[in-house]
Design a binder for these strands. Structure first.
Lengths: 157, 157
DNA sequence: TGCTTGCTTGGAGTGCACTCCAAGGTTCTA
DNA sequence: TAGAACCTTGGAGTGCACTCCAAGCAAGCA
């Protein structure tokens, strides 16, 4: 219900954070800590331990630190990365594409342009997706109004 | 890019088609025709013949007419139904839920209330989804701006 | 009439994103 | 020091939404 309210800034094709500094994504976390066990990360992110290990295995979550006995020790950096992954996942971006992005990040600053292009393509996808959903919303409203007792006959439902 | 533009009407919790008569969904179709072979429906909808048969098998597309030799003959009514299914699919509604809705339609007018409730729940889901996407858009913009040469350091990417 | 293209079926296969398992090592609390 | 709770691994399994297959019948046309 906070659809229109959350982004009142109208930006057409050119984009620039003109009136508000949109923050990077993040999960709330205890202050002054930088070592988290896998179960702590589970509690903070809502992901399962299975999924966290799987992310690592497929290269989506590389370079996780380990304790001297081999147990995972996640950092705040890792949590930030997981927050971004969570956002990208919401867009419907395939995991394989996110792995590709992680790849680019690992290769350093020389991939800035490529990363920007990937994000811009994703941005376009999200915009299309939102437009589709607005369209669908109109259809739902039409049908809900019908069932609530309005006039026109629906095609079949 | 036509996100804000497409739905300038602000409706908070109460919904009513106050200023525009949003039409039901439909696929463009040849005029004055009401019999379509499966391949014609494929051409019109973009679905595959496999998917159309599968929809029928699982009960999402019941009562499709047959020719005297057993081949499917789709009607305009069927196309309308497929258009609705297409819209619902876009919302991420599981196929099983759509089958449940088809069930309700089959049972007739006595299920109007149930259908309305189902659609209203879907509507809420879509609204949440849109809000999530707007959120994600803000994150994407933040990062794109960074890669385009802005100030703040991103968490890891 | 023969040929090509299209349609039928049940059942098996695919790809994605997890999700779980068994067997064993680690860490914490009493 | 014992027991419970947590962590590790590779590999197998799950659920969803298709997607494909083989074998055979149907339709249109030269």
């Amino acid at each position: 219900m906070t659809v229109m309210e959350t982004t009142p800034r109208s930006r057409a094709a050119t984009r620039k954070p003109d009136n508000c500094a949109s923050a990077p994504p993040s999960y709330p976390r205890p202050e002054g800590q930088d070592h988290y066990s896998i179960s702590e990360v589970v509690a903070l992110t809502g992901l399962t331990a299975h999924t966290l290990r799987w992310y690592e295995r497929i290269g989506l979550m590389p370079d996780v630190d380990r304790s001297h006995t081999g147990q995972r020790r996640y950092s705040n950096r890792d949590l930030d990365w997981l927050a971004l992954v969570g956002k990208l996942r919401l867009t419907g971006m395939p995991v394989a594409d996110m792995v590709r992005y992680a790849e680019l990040v690992r290769r350093g600053e020389q991939t800035f342009d490529e990363r920007r292009e990937l994000l811009e393509a994703t941005r376009r996808d999200v915009l299309n997706r939102v437009a589709e959903l607005q369209d669908t919303l109109a259809v739902l409203d039409y049908k809900i109004d019908f069932y609530a007792g309005a006039r026109p006959t629906p095609e079949r439902a």
